[in-house]
C-alpha cells in the first residue's frame, strides 16, 4: 500500500469522474444518464477513501462519509428509476430529448 502515491488514486478517481460526467451529459437514454451519475458518485467515494487512508487513518470520518454517500446513491437510484418508469408509462419514451414537459 505505501508504495502507491496518493496522487495515483486521485488521478484514477478524476478520470472515472470525467467519464461519468461525459456519460451523464451526453447519453440520450435516461437510464444511461443515471448510470453516468452513479459512476461519478463512485469516483468521489474513491477520493474519500483515499484521503481517509493517506491523511487521517486514525479517524473514522472518511469511511462514515463513504457509507452515507453510498446510501444516498442507492436512494437516488431508486427514486430516479421510479421517475424514469413513470415517464415511460405516461410518455412512452426514455429518450430524454422527447421529455420537455417542464421546458418553457
Amino acid at each position: 500500500m505505501p508504495d502507491i502515491p496518493l496522487s495515483w488514486y486521485l488521478i484514477v478517481a478524476s478520470a472515472l469522474f470525467c467519464i461519468g460526467l461525459f456519460g451523464a451529459l451526453s447519453r440520450r437514454n435516461a437510464i444511461g444518464i443515471l448510470m453516468g451519475i452513479e459512476v461519478m458518485l463512485n469516483a468521489v467515494n474513491i477520493n474519500l477513501v483515499a484521503f481517509w487512508r493517506y491523511i487521517t487513518p486514525q479517524a473514522l470520518t472518511g469511511q462514515v462519509f463513504v457509507i452515507v454517500s453510498i446510501t444516498v446513491a442507492a436512494a437516488e437510484a431508486a427514486v430516479g428509476l421510479a421517475l424514469i418508469l413513470a415517464i415511460f408509462r405516461s410518455r412512452d419514451t426514455v429518450n430524454i430529448e422527447d421529455v420537455h414537459l417542464m421546458k418553457w
Binding site: M1, W52, R53, I70
Partner: peptide
C-alpha cells in the same frame, strides 16, 4: 488496495 475491506464488501453488495 486502500485497506478498507468493509467498504469493499458494501460496494459489492450495494452497487
Amino acid at each position: 488496495l486502500l485497506e478498507a475491506g468493509f467498504l469493499a464488501a458494501i460496494q459489492l453488495l450495494i452497487y
